[in-house]
Protein backbone atom coordinates (compact mmCIF):
# COMPACT_ATOMS: atom_id res chain seq x y z
CA UNK A 1 0.00 0.00 0.00
CA UNK A 2 1.34 3.39 -0.99
CA UNK A 3 1.91 5.79 1.90
CA UNK A 4 0.79 9.28 1.05
CA UNK A 5 1.95 12.54 2.59
CA UNK A 6 -0.66 15.27 2.76
CA UNK A 7 0.83 18.72 2.22
CA UNK A 8 -0.67 21.62 4.15
CA UNK A 9 0.76 25.10 4.31
CA UNK A 10 1.80 27.28 7.26
CA UNK A 11 3.12 30.74 7.91
CA UNK A 12 6.62 29.36 8.17
CA UNK A 13 6.42 26.84 5.34
CA UNK A 14 4.34 27.47 2.24
CA UNK A 15 4.98 27.23 -1.47
CA UNK A 16 2.92 29.32 -3.83
CA UNK A 17 1.67 28.01 -7.15
CA UNK A 18 1.20 30.27 -10.15
CA UNK A 19 -0.82 31.12 -13.21
CA UNK A 20 0.98 30.13 -16.41
CA UNK A 21 -0.52 32.37 -19.04
CA UNK A 22 -1.06 31.16 -22.60
CA UNK A 23 -3.34 33.91 -23.88
CA UNK A 24 -4.86 35.87 -21.01
CA UNK A 25 -4.26 38.44 -18.28
CA UNK A 26 -3.10 36.98 -14.94
CA UNK A 27 -5.10 39.66 -13.10
CA UNK A 28 -8.28 37.90 -14.20
CA UNK A 29 -7.43 35.04 -11.84
CA UNK A 30 -6.74 37.22 -8.74
CA UNK A 31 -4.19 34.61 -7.70
CA UNK A 32 -2.82 34.91 -4.15
CA UNK A 33 -1.93 32.76 -1.15
CA UNK A 34 -3.42 33.11 2.33
CA UNK A 35 -0.11 32.35 4.09
CA UNK A 36 1.75 34.84 1.94
CA UNK A 37 -0.90 37.48 2.66
CA UNK A 38 -0.92 36.78 6.40
CA UNK A 39 2.87 36.80 6.55
CA UNK A 40 2.78 40.41 5.31
CA UNK A 41 -0.22 41.61 7.33
CA UNK A 42 -0.54 43.32 10.67
CA UNK A 43 -2.34 41.54 13.53
CA UNK A 44 -6.03 41.07 12.72
CA UNK A 45 -5.84 43.04 9.47
CA UNK A 46 -8.78 41.73 7.42
CA UNK A 47 -7.39 41.35 3.91
CA UNK A 48 -9.80 40.21 1.22
CA UNK A 49 -8.39 37.35 -0.86
CA UNK A 50 -11.67 36.57 -2.64
CA UNK A 51 -14.76 38.61 -3.43
CA UNK A 52 -18.09 37.71 -5.01
CA UNK A 53 -20.56 40.61 -5.05
CA UNK A 54 -20.78 41.66 -1.37
CA UNK A 55 -19.33 38.42 -0.02
CA UNK A 56 -15.65 38.10 0.81
CA UNK A 57 -13.09 35.70 2.16
CA UNK A 58 -10.58 37.43 4.40
CA UNK A 59 -7.09 36.22 5.27
CA UNK A 60 -6.37 37.28 8.85
CA UNK A 61 -3.11 37.10 10.74
CA UNK A 62 -4.15 36.19 14.27
CA UNK A 63 -1.57 37.42 16.76
CA UNK A 64 -2.23 38.46 20.33
CA UNK A 65 -5.76 39.46 21.33
CA UNK A 66 -8.16 41.00 18.82
CA UNK A 67 -10.76 43.64 19.44
CA UNK A 68 -14.27 42.50 20.28
CA UNK A 69 -16.44 42.33 17.13
CA UNK A 70 -20.20 42.27 16.66
CA UNK A 71 -21.60 40.38 13.71
CA UNK A 72 -25.13 40.71 12.31
CA UNK A 73 -24.97 37.36 10.50
CA UNK A 74 -23.13 34.09 10.89
CA UNK A 75 -19.44 34.21 10.05
CA UNK A 76 -17.11 31.22 9.92
CA UNK A 77 -13.45 31.18 10.94
CA UNK A 78 -11.31 28.41 9.45
CA UNK A 79 -7.93 28.14 11.14
CA UNK A 80 -5.36 27.55 8.40
CA UNK A 81 -2.32 27.55 10.71
CA UNK A 82 -1.60 27.73 14.43
CA UNK A 83 -4.01 27.76 17.36
CA UNK A 84 -6.72 30.35 17.91
CA UNK A 85 -9.03 30.75 20.90
CA UNK A 86 -12.46 32.10 20.02
CA UNK A 87 -14.30 33.78 22.89
CA UNK A 88 -18.03 34.41 22.49
CA UNK A 89 -20.30 36.82 24.29
CA UNK A 90 -24.07 37.34 24.26
CA UNK A 91 -24.37 41.15 24.46
CA UNK A 92 -26.77 42.71 26.93
CA UNK A 93 -28.11 44.97 24.20
CA UNK A 94 -28.24 44.90 20.42
CA UNK A 95 -24.92 46.26 19.12
CA UNK A 96 -25.43 45.99 15.39
CA UNK A 97 -28.37 46.27 12.99
CA UNK A 98 -29.37 42.65 12.21
CA UNK A 99 -29.91 43.70 8.57
CA UNK A 100 -26.37 45.08 8.28
CA UNK A 101 -23.59 43.28 6.42
CA UNK A 102 -20.15 42.56 7.74
CA UNK A 103 -18.95 42.58 11.34
CA UNK A 104 -17.80 45.72 13.13
CA UNK A 105 -15.09 46.31 15.70
CA UNK A 106 -16.05 47.53 19.17
CA UNK A 107 -14.11 50.02 21.27
CA UNK A 108 -14.33 47.94 24.43
CA UNK A 109 -15.70 44.69 25.78
CA UNK A 110 -19.49 45.07 25.93
CA UNK A 111 -21.54 43.95 28.87
CA UNK A 112 -23.23 40.64 28.39
CA UNK A 113 -23.20 36.94 29.17
CA UNK A 114 -20.30 34.63 28.45
CA UNK A 115 -21.33 32.03 25.88
CA UNK A 116 -18.21 29.93 25.94
CA UNK A 117 -15.03 29.45 23.97
CA UNK A 118 -13.50 27.32 21.26
CA UNK A 119 -9.85 26.33 21.06
CA UNK A 120 -9.27 25.70 17.37
CA UNK A 121 -6.19 24.32 15.65
CA UNK A 122 -5.30 23.90 12.00
CA UNK A 123 -8.24 22.74 9.95
CA UNK A 124 -10.81 23.56 12.61
CA UNK A 125 -13.76 25.76 11.67
CA UNK A 126 -15.66 27.79 14.26
CA UNK A 127 -19.02 29.46 13.90
CA UNK A 128 -19.29 33.12 14.90
CA UNK A 129 -23.04 33.30 15.39
CA UNK A 130 -25.32 36.08 14.21
CA UNK A 131 -26.12 38.80 16.75
CA UNK A 132 -23.27 37.83 19.06
CA UNK A 133 -19.87 39.26 19.88
CA UNK A 134 -16.50 37.56 19.58
CA UNK A 135 -12.79 38.04 19.82
CA UNK A 136 -9.75 35.96 18.89
CA UNK A 137 -6.71 35.16 21.02
CA UNK A 138 -3.52 33.68 19.57
CA UNK A 139 -0.36 33.31 21.64
CA UNK A 140 1.67 32.63 18.50
CA UNK A 141 1.01 33.98 14.97
CA UNK A 142 -1.78 32.00 13.32
CA UNK A 143 -3.85 32.29 10.15
CA UNK A 144 -7.63 32.50 9.85
CA UNK A 145 -9.67 32.35 6.64
CA UNK A 146 -12.90 34.19 7.43
CA UNK A 147 -16.13 33.59 5.48
CA UNK A 148 -18.07 36.82 5.77
CA UNK A 149 -19.54 39.87 4.03
CA UNK A 150 -17.48 42.95 3.34
CA UNK A 151 -17.51 45.42 6.19
CA UNK A 152 -16.09 48.82 6.99
CA UNK A 153 -12.65 47.44 7.82
CA UNK A 154 -12.27 44.91 5.02
CA UNK A 155 -8.94 45.71 3.39
CA UNK A 156 -8.56 45.52 -0.39
CA UNK A 157 -5.04 45.48 -1.78
CA UNK A 158 -5.31 43.23 -4.80
CA UNK A 159 -2.32 44.71 -6.59
CA UNK A 160 -0.11 43.91 -3.61
CA UNK A 161 -1.24 40.34 -3.05
CA UNK A 162 -2.10 39.00 -6.53
CA UNK A 163 0.05 37.75 -9.38
CA UNK A 164 0.13 40.49 -12.00
CA UNK A 165 2.58 39.21 -14.61
Amino acid sequence: MNQYTTVFGSLSDFEKGRVDIVDDDPKYYAFSNVYDVASRSGPYEKVAVAKNLEYVLEAIRAEGTSEWRATPHDEFALVMDGTVIVELLDPAEQLIDPDASGSIGLDAQPSGTRMGRVIAGRGHMAMLPAGRVYRFVADEPAVILLQTIEGPDTVYKWADICQTV
Partner: peptide, 10 residues
Protein backbone atom coordinates in the same frame (compact mmCIF):
# COMPACT_ATOMS: atom_id res chain seq x y z
CA UNK B 1 -3.95 29.54 -19.02
CA UNK B 2 -2.79 26.79 -16.73
CA UNK B 3 -3.28 27.44 -13.02
CA UNK B 4 -1.08 25.57 -10.57
CA UNK B 5 -2.60 25.67 -7.08
CA UNK B 6 -0.77 24.62 -3.93
CA UNK B 7 -1.83 24.63 -0.27
CA UNK B 8 -3.08 28.08 0.69
CA UNK B 9 -3.43 29.36 -2.87
CA UNK B 10 -6.54 31.30 -3.86
Amino acid sequence: ARVVMKAGDV
